[in-house]
Every structure is written in C-alpha cells, then in structure tokens.
Amino acid sequence: MPKKAVVTIRYGPYSAVGLAVEHRTFRLEGLQVVLKKDGHQLILEKMDDWNLVELVVNGEVVFHCNIEDLEFGGDGKLDTLCEEARIAVLNAY
C-alpha cells in the first residue's frame, strides 16, 4: 500500500470503568498517532458493534481488535496492537 492511504477507523461503543456504554476515542489515540506518522489520512467512523475496532482500506477490513485491548491514550509506540495494525495497513492492497 502506498503511503498516504485513506484509512477508516471504525469503532464501537464500550464501557469505561463501569460508566455507561458510549463511543469513546481515548483508546484510539495511540493507533491514530502511529498511522498518521506513516502519512495516512484517517477517518473516524462510529459503528454499533460493541468493543470492536476495524481498520478499513479500499473498502476491505485489514485489521480488527477489541477496543479495550488497545492502551489508553499514549503514542502507540509500546502498544503491540498498534504495530500489528500499522503492518496490516502497509500490507493492504
């Protein structure tokens, strides 16, 4: 995949520390930093599936994980899921 691809980050609602289930982006911050560093354009899109994150490139889901498995905040450098997502986007066609 060439650099500067358009990556749609689809994310569902989740419950944080016993609070109500809502769409939150705090756990997506590191993922966004890692993908932007590679020069990709990001689009955040809410979806109804609970606890799910999907990365879509050219209409194809290239990566998915449980949103609660991503580290809260940060730059994504130490989050192994962020690196897996980065590689999945780079290998997308």
Rank of each mutant, 00 (worst) to 15 (best):
1 M>A: 14
2 P>I: 12
3 K>W: 12
3 K>T: 15
3 K>C: 10
3 K>E: 11
4 K>R: 13
4 K>G: 15
5 A>E: 14
7 V>T: 13
7 V>I: 14
9 I>C: 08
11 Y>K: 10
11 Y>Q: 04
12 G>K: 01
13 P>S: 04
15 S>T: 11
15 S>Y: 09
15 S>F: 08
16 A>V: 00
16 A>K: 11
16 A>R: 01
16 A>N: 10
16 A>G: 02
17 V>P: 00
18 G>E: 07
18 G>L: 05
18 G>Y: 07
19 L>V: 11
19 L>A: 13
19 L>P: 00
21 V>N: 06
22 E>S: 12
22 E>D: 12
23 H>V: 10
24 R>E: 11
24 R>H: 15
26 F>T: 14
27 R>Y: 07
28 L>K: 05
28 L>V: 09
29 E>L: 14
29 E>A: 14
30 G>N: 00
30 G>M: 02
32 Q>L: 11
32 Q>W: 11
33 V>E: 07
33 V>W: 08
34 V>Y: 02
34 V>F: 10
34 V>P: 00
35 L>P: 04
36 K>G: 14
38 D>F: 01
40 H>T: 10
40 H>Q: 02
41 Q>E: 14
41 Q>N: 08
42 L>A: 08
43 I>Q: 12
43 I>A: 14
45 E>K: 07
46 K>Y: 04
46 K>E: 15
46 K>F: 04
47 M>C: 06
47 M>V: 07
48 D>W: 08
48 D>A: 13
49 D>G: 03
50 W>A: 06
50 W>C: 00
50 W>M: 11
50 W>Q: 09
50 W>K: 06
52 L>Y: 10
53 V>L: 00
54 E>L: 09
54 E>V: 07
55 L>T: 02
55 L>Q: 03
57 V>I: 10
57 V>S: 01
57 V>G: 03
58 N>D: 15
58 N>T: 07
59 G>V: 09
60 E>G: 09
61 V>A: 02
61 V>G: 05
61 V>M: 02
62 V>M: 01
62 V>T: 04
62 V>G: 03
62 V>A: 03
62 V>L: 03
63 F>K: 06
63 F>C: 05
64 H>K: 13
65 C>H: 07
65 C>L: 07
66 N>R: 04
66 N>A: 05
67 I>V: 15
68 E>L: 03
68 E>N: 06
68 E>Q: 03
69 D>M: 06
69 D>C: 04
69 D>R: 07
69 D>W: 08
69 D>Y: 09
69 D>T: 08
71 E>D: 09
72 F>S: 09
73 G>R: 10
74 G>W: 01
74 G>I: 02
74 G>E: 00
75 D>M: 01
77 K>A: 12
78 L>S: 13
79 D>V: 09
80 T>S: 13
80 T>R: 12
82 C>R: 05
84 E>L: 12
85 A>R: 02
85 A>Y: 00
86 R>K: 11
87 I>G: 05
87 I>A: 12
87 I>R: 11
87 I>C: 07
88 A>P: 00
89 V>D: 03
89 V>R: 06
89 V>K: 04
89 V>H: 08
90 L>H: 13
90 L>E: 12
93 Y>P: 12
93 Y>M: 06
